[in-house]
Design a protein around this nucleic acid. Structure first.
Lengths: 225, 225
DNA sequence: AATTGTGAAGCATTTCACAGCT
DNA sequence: AGCTGTGAAATGCTTCACAATT
C-alpha cells in the first residue's frame, strides 16, 4: 500500500489551505478556525476538518488551528518543505508565464531547468534559468534530481517529450498539451487542457441551454420516469 | 429546474470527445465505437456511452457513432455551434498565451476583446484584437454580447475585474487568479490555479511520501480500525 | 455478431450530527 | 462555551451486466 486512500480532491485542496494559512500567519494572526478557513477558501468547514484529519489531529478543540504550525504541516505533507525541482519543457508563452510564476513566487516548487527545440531560444534565459536543447533533457533531469515535469509543447511533441521526462526519472507530469500521454505506472500525470476548460465553460452559458434542451427533445421518444 | 442534473465531470469530458471526433472525421473515418473513443481519450467505454446518453441516443447499436453527426451534436450541446464570445482580462504572458491559443485554433470560443491596466499595452494588438483600458470593459462586454470572461490578472485585482465582468453580463468566468471570487449566482466560475496544480503534484512525488507518513506517525495515537 | 443504452450495484466524496476536548 | 474530530447518512459518480437494436 503506497498511499493510504486519501481523495485526490482533498490533496488539491491542501495548497489552497496552505496559501490562506500563510497569508493569515503573515498578518500576525496565530489562530484560525475551520469556519474562517471555509470563508476564505470557499470550501465547507466540515470538509476542511475532514481533509486535515486524514493526516492527523492538527487543531485544538474549542480553539482552532495554529496558522504557522498548520502551514508547516501541510507543506510537509505535500513535500514542499524541502523544495521540489521541476523541469519546464516548451518555452512558449504559456511556458514563459509558468516559469515566471513559479520561479519568482514560490521556492517550494522550483523550475530549475528549461528545454526547447527552437535554436533561437536555446542559450537564452528565463528568470536566470538557461534554456537548453531537448537532447540534454534526460541527463539533466537525472543530474538535478528533478521530480516534476511541466509539458507546454505542441500536442504532436508531447508523447516524445513525456517519454524523455520519464526516462530521466520524473515522477509526476503536469501536461498542458491536448494529448493523451501513455506512460508507465510510476509517473503520475495531471492534465490541464485550457481548450477543454474554455469549451466546457460555454455549456454554462445561455448559448448552450436551449441548444441542449433542443437536442434532448429531438431524440427523446420513449424515455420516462 | 435550470439544468437537468448532468455531472459536471461529464460536461468536462465532452470537449475531449469533440476533439477526437473531429480528428477522426478529418481522417475521413465515418464511424467510431465507444471502445475506440475510449482508447483515444483514456476514459472507459461505459462512461462515454453514459455521458452521451444524458443528451439522447446518438449511436447506432451494433455499429457505433457517426463521427460527423456526433461532433455536431456535441458542439451544439456545449453551445459552440454558433460561436461564443469571450473577453480576456489581463494581457500578461498567460493571457497572451491563451489569446494566441484561442484566437488561432478554434472559432468556437473566440476572444473578441482584451483588457489591461498597463498604458503601454493599451492600443497594441494581440492576434488582431486591440487591447483596451479596463474602463471600457463593462460596456464592451454588453455591446459585443460577450458571455465568457477569462481572468488573468493579479490576485489583488481579480475581484474588482470579476465584478466588472459580471456587470457587463458575463455568464461564466475562467479565473486564473489565486483568489476566491464572490459573485452573484448567475455567474458560473471555474477556477484554474496553476500554483495549486504544481503544489499538489508534489504530493505524488517521493519527496512527499515519507513526509506524509512521518506527519501521520507524529500525531496518530489512538487511531485504529 | 457487434455495439449501444441503461437500470442496478458499487465506490467515492461530501454533508450531517454530535461526541470529545480545552 | 466553543470548535475540533469523526462515525453515519446522504449524495454523486463510475462500473457492471445485460437487454435492446441493427
Amino acid at each position: 500500500m503506497r498511499k493510504p486512500k486519501i481523495p485526490e480532491a482533498a490533496i488539491k485542496r491542501l495548497p489552497v489551505y496552505l496559501r490562506v494559512l500563510e497569508e493569515t500567519a503573515a498578518a500576525e494572526i496565530q489562530i484560525i478556525s475551520s469556519a474562517e478557513l471555509a470563508d476564505k477558501t470557499g470550501f465547507s468547514p466540515e470538509q476542511i476538518r475532514k481533509d486535515l484529519a486524514y493526516f492527523g489531529a492538527f487543531g485544538t478543540r474549542g480553539v482552532g488551528y495554529d496558522t504557522i504550525l498548520l502551514s508547516r504541516r501541510i507543506a510537509r505533507i505535500l513535500g514542499l518543505h524541502q523544495g521540489v525541482h521541476a523541469a519546464l519543457v516548451g518555452a512558449g508563452h504559456l511556458g514563459y508565464a509558468l516559469a515566471r510564476y513559479s520561479i519568482s513566487r514560490h521556492k517550494d516548487v522550483r523550475i530549475t531547468a528549461i528545454f526547447d527545440t527552437d535554436p533561437a531560444k536555446i542559450g537564452t534565459e528565463i528568470m536566470g534559468v538557461t534554456i537548453r536543447p531537448m537532447a540534454d533533457l534526460r541527463q539533466a533531469v537525472k543530474d538535478q534530481n528533478i521530480k516534476i515535469g511541466i509539458l507546454t509543447v505542441p500536442a504532436t511533441e508531447a508523447q516524445a517529450a513525456a517519454e524523455q521526462l520519464q526516462e530521466g526519472g520524473v515522477e509526476a507530469i503536469l501536461n498542458f498539451a491536448p494529448a493523451k500521454l501513455r506512460l508507465g505506472p510510476n509517473v503520475f500525470v495531471q492534465n490541464i487542457d485550457l481548450t477543454i476548460e474554455l469549451q466546457s465553460l460555454a455549456y454554462y452559458t445561455s448559448a448552450s441551454e436551449e441548444a441542449a434542451a433542443q437536442v434532448v427533445e429531438e431524440t427523446s421518444s420513449s424515455i420516462d420516469s
